[in-house]
Design a protein around this nucleic acid. Structure first.
Length: 302
RNA sequence: GGGGAGAUAGCGAAGUGGCUAAACGCGGUUGACUGUAAAUCAAUUCUCUACGAGUUCGGCGGUUCGAAUCCGUCUCUCCCCA
């Protein structure tokens, strides 16, 4: 089993820096586990690590796509697993660092995204209730776990069932266990402090030219339809770009959305993973985790 | 100085006699999550000794069986004319 060190946690807790520190301490290479930082053009709004901050440590899955391209969990799973294999085969420690819980889990656990084409019917003529009834008739087991109002999920489950094995069957076929020897760290900061750091970070983005980045790449209506525009830090500028709102309003929205996002990340990490939680501001705690990682790193799993 | 409008829960905003602890939106809290996940969705949000009880709709005082809703008065805010 390949060893993989995971540095997770909500935004603005210092994951990137700690990952670099670990890479240097354990001869590792970093794999970006963040869904927006894959885009070459988008750096400021995604809080991408700078070349300086990388300190010579190789980073994978960063700047691999044009911002006009779509990207999804399956793509990430494939690329990240390949990167893990590549890094480990050269005797280095793969370090997965990111805040997209779903992405991380898809790589680490035995999620199986089949490559068969799945239909993309949208059933616009059906209301939520009717759509949900349809799912109930196709895959009642899956329906049990999806809320009727969550159209996106209901739709996906229907399309999966129509194109191959049912969603519920696909999941029943998995072991729901990690396929790597994982050590997962979740960096965290007390909520009030975290909110404060988020505010500071967003205002720093502004100082570093976020508005220029946005107007450079997302001025056109076409660009505003790219998936990358959906990221926090960009979509908030829609009103500004169309001349109906100020940049200030956008900045405030980014802060709020980032705060809400951090909360969701925390929820995910709390409930979806077994992890070693670390207070990112506590140096002795950070040092202690490094010791624990060292121990894990040096032992072969039976 | 004269005339007009308004004060509703953290914020915005409905409600003009009982069905109102008070619509709705935002924000907050909690949670779900298997191909857009920085997405999508749900629950909850006056207080408490919490399947019941107690206090709310600027303050005070009335009318009424019953008021956020009607009357009087005070305070504050905004607009117009001087």
């Amino acid at each position: 089993m390949r060893k993989v060190l995971i540095i997770a946690g909500p935004t603005a807790t210092g994951k990137s820096a700690f990952a670099v520190q670990c890479a240097k301490a354990f001869d590792g290479e970093i794999i970006n586990g963040d869904s927006q930082q894959v885009y070459r053009q988008l750096s400021i709004g995604t809080a991408k690590i700078t070349d300086d901050q990388k300190q010579g440590v190789p980073h994978h899955l960063l700047d691999i796509l044009e911002y006009s391209q779509p990207y999804n969990v399956a793509d990430f799973q494939k690329a990240a697993r390949a990167a893990i294999e590549d890094i480990a085969s050269r005797g280095k420690l793969p370090i997965l660092c990111g805040g997209s819980g779903h992405y991380l889990k898809a790589v680490l656990y035995d999620y199986d995204f089949k490559s068969e084409p799945v239909s993309e019917l949208t059933y616009d003529e059906l209301n939520d209730q009717a759509l949900y009834d349809l799912l109930l008739s196709i895959d009642p087991l899956a329906a049990e776990k999806i809320h009727m109002n969550n159209r996106k999920r209901v739709l996906r489950a229907i399309n999966l069932g129509l194109s191959g094995p049912l969603k519920s069957q696909r999941e029943a076929a998995q072991n729901h266990e990690p396929i790597y020897d994982c050590f997962m760290v979740v960096m965290t900061v007390e909520r009030d402090l975290l909110n404060q750091r988020i505010e500071e970070r967003v205002s720093a983005m502004k100082d570093h030219g976020l508005i220029e980045e946005v107007t450079t790449f997302f001025a056109s209506k076409e660009a505003q339809s790219f998936q990358s525009f959906l990221g926090i830090g960009y979509k908030e500028f829609r009103g500004f770009l169309n001349g109906t709102e100020t940049a200030e309003t956008a900045i405030e929205l980014i802060v709020t959305h980032t705060r809400q996002f951090a909360k969701r990340q925390l929820t995910w990490f709390r409930h979806q993973f077994e992890a070693r939680w670390v207070n990112a501001l506590d140096h002795s705690d950070l040092t202690q985790v490094q010791d624990e990682i060292r121990l894990w790193h040096s032992q072969e799993k039976p």
